[in-house]
Design a protein around this nucleic acid. Structure first.
Lengths: 203, 203
DNA sequence: CCATTTAGCAAACGATCGTTCGTAATCTAT
DNA sequence: ATAGATTACGAACGATCGTTTGCTAAATGG
């Protein structure tokens, strides 16, 4: 056989590969991704599959990029149009917790898993993970600063501290869901995030 | 050649293998462990190496067991003789943070990495990780309950909430150290843990 | 309508994976 | 001293890894 798909539809093929790669990598890790396994899942040849990317590392980067896009779509997009400040910060936390519960990634939060998997290695994958997390950090801290400037949060609030705690709680929530199946964890994470931000029980 | 070591010293060989396996797995993951790589590092044959364990999975379990022992030695042992309560709980948090800073595991907290790596799989490795974390959880929650019973903490303190937050903060601290090299993270983690426990700024 | 590009495949590459087998050398215990 | 365990080895097993090479056939562009 040969080109089963038109030149335009080749993009569709690529997207199917990436979607499958994201699903597999979320459970088996980006390093656990295997071209042969992926090709078998999609009933295509290894050569035809990797031809879309050139190398396994670029396939990993494509999967990571898609996972970042999914995270952005689920957590950031719903609140992106609101003004920066306390209210949006709380909405972000809600969307974040909901995202971790949503099950978009069968193996749990992709970025968290990738950050743990590559935290001791070097290369473009690690760098891309760091860049994505740094961007997310800057978003959170920006909203904290805006809330402080608007008098919605105490002046002594430390943006870096809020980021550190909320990020940690999100990772912990992911572990609680994936490893323990703890149904009470989302509520605990939400409560703790609100306390980390410095908002009262009414928050 | 043949038995380079006496029957008694064979145990030493095994310990060397496990020690190296822990170091490698802390950076490359338990699944990234490779018998050939390990044998090369230790200048021995693959067959001679795996003969001590029987299979790769049992080698993984041995490495995991050793990592659990190291964690216990570094975090639990120093405070094990104190009475349960608020003071010991704070000492545990200090030892926990110090452990994550210590660099015993070149690739960062072994248990955290293993829990993320195996949270979407099944098998004895995952079960052992869960058991270790459950035990650690019970230790933390027991001290919280003791502190509440002694009036050292507010009666409304929820042991499960304290565990959830402290565990999450430890994981987040590990990420901050390994991925970002954030020197300010230990202090932030300590502060947040104390707040999670419900103790004033005096600590 | 024809030339070029492109999508995808089959097959093979050398390397490495975990595991098994047979054997030699040493230790232990009789 | 001798018999049996034990330790570790070299070599090989089939399987799979990521990648490369040619090829076919369909889509595209002049």
């Amino acid at each position: 056989m040969s080109p089963r798909r038109s030149a335009a539809a080749a993009r569709e093929t690529r997207e199917e590969i990436v979607a499958r790669a994201v699903a597999v990598a979320s459970t088996d890790g980006l390093e656990g991704l295997t071209i042969g396994r992926l090709a078998g899942d999609l009933s295509m040849s290894k050569a035809g599959l990797i031809g879309h990317f050139g190398s396994k590392e670029r396939l990993q980067l494509a999967a990571l990029e898609e996972a970042i896009a999914i995270f952005t779509r689920e957590v950031w997009l719903p609140v992106a149009d609101r003004p920066a400040g306390r209210e949006r910060l709380l909405a972000i936390c809600d969307a974040w917790v909901a995202h971790l519960q949503s099950g978009v990634f069968p193996g749990g939060c992709f970025l968290t898993a990738a950050s743990m998997e590559f935290d001791g290695r070097s290369g473009p994958v690690r760098e891309r993970v760091i860049a994505a997390l740094e961007l997310w950090r800057s978003v959170i801290e920006h909203d904290v600063r805006a809330a402080v400037a608007a008098g919605e949060l105490p002046a002594a609030t430390d943006p870096a501290q809020v980021w550190f705690e909320c990020n940690a709680l999100a990772i912990g929530l992911n572990q609680a869901i994936q490893l323990f199946g703890d149904a009470g964890a989302p509520a605990r994470a939400s409560r703790a995030m609100r306390r980390a931000i410095g908002v009262g029980a009414d928050g």
